[in-house]
């Protein structure tokens, strides 16, 4: 394991019990390596979103520890929620500016960075539009721009494309891969879609239906170009089959 692949953040023996007594996670071990696109794949209710929120610091674990490689300088974290979660009264520019505004950056100082983030997601022409004037895909692009504007070391994405139609989703997946190549950000992506996980990631962790334990790990060659060819190819279907089996195994005897 070379230096670049040293765990960027590692979760050890993580348990999470919510205030209402529901145990979301039990003894979960996993690590995120720098520069990878890691997918957490699991059935609904397996706690994969909880893992993401723990990494983001939005929740504290009941037991276990989360360790960042460099504990003294916590890297910036960007988060993309299931819904675009934009401020409905603010235009696209103001929405993307929000994280910097909360950090005390003046509007003038932030403007080039906001414009750059909008450029990255292809929303430059819509900086003055309100969220209600945007399509579902464009709202999600705005949410991604907002997550990127702080130049985070890790981008956490919680089923961001689940509510989009297939054509839009494919386009956004391709754009995300291009973005990732350009920014070299580490991405942790949560999804319940086998195809999405194989297409996007360099590594897939399949989580068990109850307690979120990692039941399988699948590596996807990062060098293979992600395109239509890949999506229709042999390698893709083999990986999908494997991930699909692992997912079925993860469901166990669960009643659906």
């Amino acid at each position: 394991m070379n230096a670049a692949a040293k765990p960027f953040v590692s979760l050890r023996g993580i348990g999470k019990v919510f205030a209402n007594g529901v145990m979301a996670l039990r003894d979960v071990d996993l690590e995120v390596r720098e520069g990878e696109t890691l997918t957490l794949l699991g059935p609904s209710g397996c706690g994969k979103s909880t893992v993401l929120r723990l990494i983001a610091g939005l929740l504290a674990p009941t037991s276990g520890a989360i360790a960042w490689r460099d504990a003294n300088a916590l890297p910036g974290v960007g988060f993309v929620f299931q819904e675009p979660t934009l401020l409905p009264w603010a235009d696209v520019f103001a929405n993307v500016y929000l994280p910097l505004r909360l950090a005390g950056v003046s509007r003038a100082a932030a403007a080039p960075r906001v414009d750059e983030a909008l450029e990255l997601v292809g929303l430059s022409a819509f900086r003055g539009a309100l969220p209600r004037e945007l399509s579902g895909g464009m709202k999600m692009r705005a949410a991604i721009a907002r997550a990127l504007v702080t130049r985070p070391a890790v981008l956490l994405m919680d089923e961001p494309f689940a509510a989009l139609d297939e054509v839009t989703r494919f386009k956004l997946e391709d754009d995300l891969i291009a973005l990732k190549r350009e920014l070299e950000t580490t991405i942790v992506f949560v999804t319940h879609s086998v195809y999405e996980s194989v297409y996007l990631s360099t590594r897939i962790l399949v989580l068990a239906a109850r307690g979120g334990r990692v039941v399988d790990e699948i590596d996807v060659d990062p060098e293979v170009p992600r395109d239509e060819e890949f999506r229709l190819g042999m390698q893709f279907s083999c990986l999908c089959r494997r991930a699909s089996r692992a997912l079925q195994g993860a469901m166990g005897e669960q009643v659906l």
Binding site: R53, A56, G57, L58, V77, F79, F81, Q82, E83, T85, L87, L98, P99, L102, A103, T150
Partner: peptide
């Protein structure tokens, strides 16, 4: 207020 927006403000330590 939308809970996800509250999460967002938590994330950036508002």
């Amino acid at each position: 207020v939308d809970h996800a927006l509250l999460d967002l403000f938590d994330l950036y330590r508002a």
